Simulated assay, not measured.
Amino acid sequence: MNSNRIYAYLRASTKDQNAERARQDLQEFATSNGVAISAWFIENESGASLARPELMKLLDIAQSGDVLLVEQVDRLSRLNAEDWEKLTGMIKGKGVRVVALDLPTSHMMVNSGDEFTTRMMQALNSMMLDMLAAIARKDHQDRKRRQAQGIKLAKAEGKFKGRQIDTGLHERVLKLRDAGWSYTEIQKATNVARTTISRIIKTNLKNIHDNII
């Protein structure tokens, strides 16, 4: 049985996304490998930035041999090369083993093995992580470029209206809240972050107040 701790890290890019979406997948992976997740670290921060308080908190308390468990490598990084080097330097410096569900070569790292096997798998895992991190960064840059091109074209054609409100989601959240549902129940039903639910409810209350005035 693995005596080291397993720390699960969940991240989504925006407050409108549910960072806990992959919680069940990580839990099932841990269970199938006979280990328990010691703590969950969850945040809504961009993967293209190192300014991630929960990830830094995880690395601060982690000790050599502990596992950083993520759903996908891009949950850990969409960083540029310089920042990725800084992050991997912190991870290696602490002796933390990264296990990602989308990186099969990392799965055996969830349990301690003999020294030779562990070192060989760490070397292979490090190379694969670098490759996937580079791919995630390119995907991030490509999507940003396509988005900018789309906005530029829409503006040129006079069709750009900015980010549109999802009225259907707003109505559903408000109906569930009016029915007495808790934030947690609404979150599970709509798969959106609590901050989004709170903003929708506060915006509705403000509109009601403004109409009364």
Rank of each mutant, 00 (worst) to 15 (best):
E43T: 05
Q63F: 14
L50R: 13
W40L: 10
A51G: 14
E43K: 11
V35I: 06
S46K: 13
W40S: 06
E54A: 14
D60N: 07
G47V: 14
G47W: 14
N33P: 01
L50W: 04
A51E: 08
A48F: 03
I61E: 14
K57V: 01
E43A: 13
R52Q: 11
I42C: 10
I42R: 03
G34N: 06
S38K: 12
M56D: 05
L50S: 12
S46M: 08
E54S: 11
A36I: 11
S49F: 04
L58V: 04
A39C: 11
F41N: 07
S49W: 08
E43F: 11
L58E: 00
G34R: 05
E54N: 14
W40R: 09
E45F: 15
A36D: 10
L59Y: 02
A62S: 14
A39W: 00
A39E: 15
A36T: 13
R52N: 14
A39F: 09
K57S: 13
S49K: 13
R52G: 07
G47E: 12
I42Q: 04
W40Q: 03
L50I: 09
S32D: 13
I42K: 07
E45Y: 06
L59K: 02
F41E: 06
A39I: 08
V35P: 02
N44V: 06
I42W: 08
E45R: 15
A36L: 12
L55V: 11
S38N: 15
A48Q: 08
I42M: 01
E45C: 14
G34E: 02
M56E: 08
G34H: 01
A36H: 08
A48P: 05
L55P: 04
F41L: 10
S64W: 00
A48W: 10
A62W: 04
Q63Y: 11
S46C: 11
P53Y: 06
L59E: 03
D60Q: 05
I37W: 01
I61P: 00
M56Y: 01
S64Q: 11
R52D: 08
S38W: 12
E45H: 15
D60L: 02
